[in-house]
């Protein structure tokens, strides 16, 4: 009983202590984030501010943290009705992966209000993963890997096996491709060898997985071995390293993109195989039996996946 009271008092004291700083010094800028459009930054103020000062683009200095010399040009500033939030509209799209530093002059006497705007890096990585899996699903919105997709989506078991093997191989080979691109092809200016090197690495990975799996786990090999050959005939496996090289992704981003591409393929295969198992029982016109109806169903999936476009979680 007594200890209970003491604990409660300590807790109350702690909460008060923690909330003290926020009560004592009310910050002028209460919130800041990138806006809905890719050329906007939204700033919230704790109290109403002078409209004339806030709406004047000359009072702002905005730059990306690594290059303080390159000032970003503001197009206009939209101040909300109550004067407590301002939307900075830039003339060009912002690179939201970088931390931006925003400084406002004259808003408080003789003090330069300065703050940083950035996205959380983990959120950014997750958005790459979700993007590759759903929004830009390689099968339904980029139309890649279709041969293998239609070949292995007849049964759920095959679909799962193919999807898992594919995800494994693509993650390993994409990371190896990233390594080769960053440390060999780029420094020695051998970019024209991209295709040869990337497909060679894929062959190598497939051969290595084949050999290792055969020795280490023969049961697993019997179940999944047949899909290994098919992996190499899948466009996605060569498209991902090319995309990584084009976008100059770093290690974590490469990992996330390849994982997203692999799991997106697995998802597409699983969805498709569930439908095709049912289609076998359905009464379909003889001209549409087999592959043609599968294409029509895939078209409907592609339509459904259009609904993911514009989805942004982070």
């Amino acid at each position: 009983m007594k200890t209970n009271v003491i604990i409660r008092r300590i807790l109350v004291a702690l909460i008060l202590f923690c909330s003290l700083p926020t009560l004592a010094q009310a910050e002028l800028i209460s919130g800041k984030s990138f806006g809905g459009e890719d050329n906007e930054i939204v700033v919230n103020f704790a109290q109403a501010v002078d409209r004339a000062v806030v709406a004047n683009p000359d009072n702002y200095i905005v730059y990306e943290e690594p290059d303080p010399d390159i000032r970003l040009s503001l197009q206009q500033i939209v101040v909300s009705e109550d004067g407590r939030s301002a939307t900075l509209v830039f003339s060009e799209a912002l690179n939201t992966t970088q931390t931006h530093v925003v400084s406002i002059k004259n808003i408080t006497p003789s003090v330069l209000e300065s703050f940083k705007v950035s996205k959380s890096y983990l959120g950014y990585l997750l958005s790459i993963l979700i993007g590759a899996m759903l929004i830009n699903n390689f099968v339904f919105t980029k139309y890649l890997g279709l041969c293998v997709f239609f070949g292995t989506s007849k049964r759920k078991d095959t679909a799962k096996g193919m999807g898992i093997v594919f995800t494994l191989v693509i993650v390993v080979s994409a990371i190896m491709s990233w390594f080769f691109y960053q440390f060999f092809l780029k420094p020695f200016d051998l970019n024209f060898l991209q295709i040869v090197v990337f497909i060679g690495l894929v062959s190598l990975t497939v051969q290595a997985v084949d050999t290792v799996l055969r020795k280490v786990n023969p049961i697993l090999f019997n179940a999944f071995g047949v899909y290994l050959v098919l992996v190499i005939a899948n466009c996605i496996i060569i498209a991902v390293p090319l995309i990584l090289a084009d976008n100059e992704y770093n290690f974590y981003e490469s990992f996330m993109l390849s994982l997203g591409a692999g799991s997106g393929f697995l998802l597409a295969l699983y969805l498709m195989s569930s439908v095709r198992e049912r289609l076998e029982l359905a009464n379909i016109p003889p001209t549409y039996k087999g592959i043609p109806i599968a294409f029509v169903v895939a078209g409907q999936f592609a339509l459904a996946f259009l609904g993911f476009s514009g989805l942004s979680l982070f």
Binding site: Y143, Y288, A294, F295
Partner: peptide
Amino acid sequence: FAGFFCVGMMMAFFN
């Protein structure tokens, strides 16, 4: 995405 429908329908036509 109409590529899917188009391929499917043309295959059915040839069948």
